[in-house]
């Protein structure tokens, strides 16, 4: 049976993980590779690195990080942030990322989705959608760019359908309303998008505990859940989340540890 996926997400600046991460076992809380290895061992199904490095002159730091991660981590990982061309995609995939994620650049140049999917296959192209509930309207969400700062006037469900039509192999859907509040994902938006497309949807924004993830995977009809804080701050381990989900009858990968 195909498993639902649990995906920790890291924000990376100049090749270093930002946001305090409190693991006692960590020698270097900013080292993405060390963190990735810990999460892999704990049972993460995939990883997402979001490069937030402001200057595009500093791409070398993220390239080094991707290569080092690929050398030592043997689960799929996605790199997002700063990917604006097929060449950018190619570099990341050749360095060892399984997928690339595009957001603002996909809205500015939607053909980038087509070109990337044609060149590398849909399975390598994730389109990230940041959206907010439209005030006063039921069941309507508007797409934002630039980390949720700029409204686009685009309807999130329509954009999701277009992205998939153009070749997106997966959608990473973040609610800017629920993000950071740890009170649960926007289940209405997740469900509306999941039901409108034929590719997997990753739920993002708002996880405060395993019950929220269970909701996203059932009521939200998501295929995977992404979270940052609850894992990074050690509130829940990935294994705890997976054991909870398994108890709810949701198929998750709970491997016995090999010697």
């Amino acid at each position: 049976m195909l498993m639902r996926r649990i995906i920790p997400c890291f924000d990376v600046n100049n090749g270093r993980v930002v946001k305090g991460i409190s693991f006692v076992e960590l020698r270097d809380a900013g080292d993405p590779v060390e963190l990735a290895k810990i999460y892999e061992r704990e049972g993460a199904d995939e990883l997402v690195f979001l490069d937030i490095t402001a200057s595009s002159d500093d791409r070398a730091t993220v390239y080094d990080m991707v290569a080092a991660t690929a050398d030592q981590v043997f689960i799929p990982f996605t790199v997002g942030g700063g990917i604006r061309s097929v060449t950018d995609m190619k570099i990341m995939l050749e360095l060892g990322a399984e997928k690339v994620s595009i957001n603002t650049s996909a809205i500015q140049t939607p053909e980038l989705i087509n070109d990337g999917a044609y060149r590398f296959g849909s399975q390598a192209i994730v389109v990230a959608i940041d959206a907010r509930r439209v005030p006063g309207e039921h069941g309507a969400w508007e797409v934002y760019t630039h980390g949720g700062r700029n409204p686009t006037g685009m309807d999130a469900v329509e954009w999701a359908k277009e992205a998939v039509q153009r070749g997106a192999g997966e959608l990473l859907v973040t609610s800017m309303d629920t993000d950071g509040h740890q009170k649960g994902y926007d289940l209405g938006m997740l469900r509306a998008i999941s039901e409108a497309v034929t590719v997997p949807v990753i739920a993002s924004g708002g996880a405060g505990g395993p019950e929220h993830m269970a909701q996203a995977l059932t009521q939200g009809a998501a295929d995977a859940v992404l979270a940052a804080s609850i894992f990074h701050f050690g509130t829940y381990s990935i294994r705890q989340v997976k054991e909870y989900l398994a108890g709810e009858g949701i198929p998750v990968r709970l491997e016995p540890h090999h010697a």
């Binding site: 049976m1 195909l2 498993m3 996926r5 199904d45 849909s122 399975q123 192999g169 997966e170 034929t198 590719v199 997997p200 295929d223 995977a224 990968r253």
Partner: peptide
Amino acid sequence: SSEGRKVPHMGWNT
């Protein structure tokens, strides 16, 4: 067959 499921088959399966 894409009937009722997503293709590609992507992710962890047993």
